[in-house]
Every structure is written in structure tokens, then in C-alpha cells.
């Protein structure tokens, strides 16, 4: 890693002022677990990092709201994993975090970082997207709301300006919805996923009323599979319907080839795992 400067503002507003919309060598850093990888590889050589670790504590807290959760962007993934409020309102998040990276990374990595990094292999973005989470984004001109669904612009790309920061995430409670996240690895068991599938459903095996199905990792960004969702609505959930849903998902997604699999193979994984994820959601994941 080559030398750089580090600024440590004590407020979110101050941090935003230190960012420069036109200078890609200045970047914010939360836990740093993802950014450090790019810096060590020499892919990113910062002149200056703006640490968010000393901004207001409120951005590191989780609160139960009337209809769900407010999660500060600097909340660590470990805090999210251990939160009783999260387990109650959105148990899918708690379940997902158990197999997300490893404990040391979860102790340091932040919710805001996991989203803003734009890495399609991360597990939290598809889950938040399937749950219909929204974000409060702060910039020099004030705050704006953004659905997680609208955050990602492409491979490691988001719609955020370089001087905008995610301040909080708002997650609607599951309520009676049924949810599952399935992670498929093709290397070792602890590999980054070749495919992630998050499913949140209303209804039961007799008929699904609404569905959000999100794929990640096999695609260049976490992506809602709307034709698969549409195929799932209405009819009785049996092998025939699930086969249609799987086929719709397989046809709809756009894939990237990498060391974890070819496009053709990932398409087949999609076909199978969308089916399996819907079934897992309906059966009640452990």
C-alpha cells in the first residue's frame, strides 16, 4: 500500500465537505475492509481518505421504528447480526449475516460500506433490496431518499455522487412475509458466491400475492428479477410453476463470467436456485 493522508472528521456534514465530487483520489472509508483490498492491490491509490469512524454516534445505531428498522450506515455488520431488534423485525438479515464473510470482517465492516462499495458479490445488498429497504443519502445539497433497488449502476458502481454519503438504511419489517437468501459457492465453502438469490414473498403455497426476487454475484449488480416475480404470482406453487419461475429468472438475468463459472453455467444455477429459494422461503428457512 502506498502512502496517503487520512482525515478524521467528527460529523457527517464535515465529512461531506471534505469530499470532492471531481476527485476520485479522495474517498470516504468506513470499516475499510473492502477499500483496503483495492488499495493493497494497487487498483486504488488514494491521495486522501476521509474516515467516517469518528462521526456522530447516531450513525452507528439501530432503532426499531413503527414499521421496521432504522440502521445507521456506520453500524457494523456484527452489531447488525447481534441486534435483537433486527432479529425480530427482519430475521432474514440475521440469518444472512451468519454466513457473510467472517467474524473479523463483520466486526469492522459497515452497512453503509457494504452498500456503497457496489460489489455485486456481497450478500447484504440483495437481501436489503428484496426486503424493499430505502436509504437516506446526504450530500452538500442536503438529504435525499433512495431505494436500495435504485442504488446500483453497474459493476462496482452506484448512482451516488462522489460527495454523497449513505447516512441510514430503513428496512420494512417482514411482518407475515416469507423470506430466504441462498448463497451458491463453486470454490471452497467460504468462497465469494457465484450466485446469491434473495426472495421475499407474501402468500403461501396456495398462491403468492406479491414477490420480490433478487439475484446477485452472477450478475454485474444486484438485480430484481421481475419476470420471475410475475411468473410466481397467483397460481398454486407446485413443481410446474416453480419450473416456470426458474426459467423466467434464468432468461431474464444478465450474467458475468469469471473464475466462479461461465455464463452458461450461472444461468443453470439461477434456474435451480431461484426455485430452491422460493421453496425455502415457503418452508421457512432455519
Amino acid at each position: 500500500m502506498t502512502p496517503f493522508e487520512l482525515a478524521e472528521p467528527t460529523s457527517l456534514k464535515e465529512a461531506i465537505k471534505l469530499l470532492d465530487p471531481d476527485d476520485p483520489t479522495i474517498r470516504p472509508v468506513g470499516g475499510g475492509t473492502a477499500l483496503m483490498l483495492m488499495m493493497k492491490a494497487g487498483v486504488f491509490k488514494p491521495v486522501k481518505l476521509i474516515s467516517l469512524r469518528r462521526i456522530e454516534n447516531s450513525y452507528s445505531t439501530i432503532a426499531a421504528t413503527g414499521d421496521g428498522l432504522r440502521i445507521g450506515a456506520m453500524t457494523t455488520l456484527a452489531a447488525l447480526e447481534r441486534s435483537a431488534d433486527v432479529k425480530k423485525a427482519a430475521p432474514l438479515i440475521t440469518r444472512t449475516l451468519k454466513t457473510l464473510s467472517n467474524i473479523r470482517v463483520r466486526n469492522v465492516a459497515t452497512v453503509g460500506g457494504a452498500l456503497a462499495h457496489g460489489d455485486p458479490h456481497m450478500d447484504l445488498p440483495p437481501v436489503l433490496m428484496a426486503l424493499g429497504a430505502t436509504l437516506t443519502v446526504m450530500g452538500p445539497k442536503g438529504e435525499r431518499k433512495l431505494a436500495v433497488e435504485d442504488l446500483f449502476a453497474g459493476y462496482y458502481e452506484t448512482v451516488l455522487d462522489k460527495d454523497e454519503l449513505i447516512a441510514e438504511a430503513h428496512v420494512p419489517a417482514h411482518g407475515t412475509k416469507k423470506a430466504a437468501y441462498m448463497k451458491v459457492t463453486t470454490g471452497s465453502a467460504d468462497d465469494w458466491p457465484a450466485l446469491g438469490v434473495a426472495v421475499v414473498l407474501e402468500g403461501d403455497a396456495g398462491g403468492i400475492k406479491s414477490a420480490r426476487i433478487v439475484a446477485s454475484a452472477a450478475t454485474d449488480k444486484a438485480t430484481r428479477l421481475k419476470s420471475a416475480e410475475a411468473a410466481l404470482i397467483g397460481g398454486k406453487v407446485d413443481d410446474t410453476l416453480l419450473a416456470k419461475v426458474g426459467d423466467a429468472a434464468a432468461d431474464e438475468a444478465e450474467y458475468i463470467a469469471d473464475v466462479r463459472g461461465s455464463i452458461s453455467y450461472k444461468r443453470e444455477l439461477m434456474r435451480v436456485y431461484v426455485r430452491r429459494a422460493v421453496r425455502a422461503a415457503l418452508e421457512g428457512a432455519k
Binding site: L37, G187, S188, A189, D190, D191, V259
Partner: peptide
């Protein structure tokens, strides 16, 4: 699963993130 991927002689997975080795599971 272990394999060094090469493209035109260039190793494309020269890291523990992309070259996986056995763990507990």
C-alpha cells in the same frame, strides 16, 4: 476446486479471494 487461471500467461486469480483453499467446511 484449486486452479490457477491463466489468460495469455497472466494469472487472473492471484489472491486468496479468488484462489480458494480448503477451510473447515
Amino acid at each position: 476446486f484449486e486452479k490457477m487461471h491463466l489468460d495469455g500467461g497472466q494469472v487472473t486469480n492471484a489472491s486468496l479471494a479468488d484462489y480458494k483453499i480448503p477451510g473447515f467446511h
